[in-house]
Design a binder for these strands. Structure first.
Lengths: 112, 112
DNA sequence: GGTAAACTGAACCATATGGTTCAGTATTGC
DNA sequence: GCAATACTGAACCATATGGTTCAGTTTACC
């Protein structure tokens, strides 16, 4: 099996934070510098830089420094694996529910 | 707006760990005691207890103690909000892509 | 050439996380 | 009643997280 788990860990933990989810939505509207993002989320440059770093490590954001400003944009990661994991989990829940239904059906048949 | 963000934080951070995702899949097959889970994941009882606590706080697992054994089962949380967040993010990416396409289309028309 | 802007890195801080051990407590079964 | 089982709680540990300040460095602009 490929090393999907590290990717899942990174992305899920990147998403487990208000500020970072906010930054993603903000970058959805328009690219932004660190300064802009720090302003929008009322945080120091250094603090925002760290969040951006986390998002970049998770592949959710790419940055490019030209001159003295670093521009942040949404990355290539589309959260397909994360979506797939959740979908598979839900399918499992469904299957369990079906088995329960089935069980109740058979039990009812036997009891009555 | 309702306080969805705390739920998202809890669930995403609960999912950002191999062991915990493993426990969820394990519990999908069959309910289990803390001892069983600790054995399956080669961890102390106390360690596993903490993971189960995190999952329980996120609503992904419910536990019930009868006699001296605490049985763990999958909870009621179906990750719909998390799935929705991801879907909305992907929709945003799509929309951006469409706008880009549109832009390129218009630019090409003007340039050629 | 000098000042301001934008970022960066190191250091620090408080708290959280993921694990352990150890010392209980409560239940079970002989 | 006693030993073993199953869990629990406190304490501890190392490292990570989310933030700060402060002291640079680089770039832009008058």
């Amino acid at each position: 099996m490929v090393q999907f788990t590290g990717q899942l860990n990174n992305a899920f933990s990147a998403l487990a934070d208000d500020t970072r989810r906010g930054v993603l939505q903000r970058l959805g509207k328009r690219e932004a510098s660190i300064t802009e993002l720090a302003g929008d989320f009322d945080m120091t440059l250094t603090g925002m830089k760290k969040h951006v770093q986390v998002l970049e490590d998770a592949g959710l954001v790419v940055t490019e420094k030209v001159g003295r400003v670093r521009t942040c944009r949404l990355g290539t990661r589309k959260l397909h694996e994360e979506q797939a994991w959740i979908a598979q989990y839900q399918a499992m829940l469904e299957a369990r529910y079906d088995r329960l239904e089935d069980f109740l059906e058979r039990t009812r048949g036997g009891d009555e």
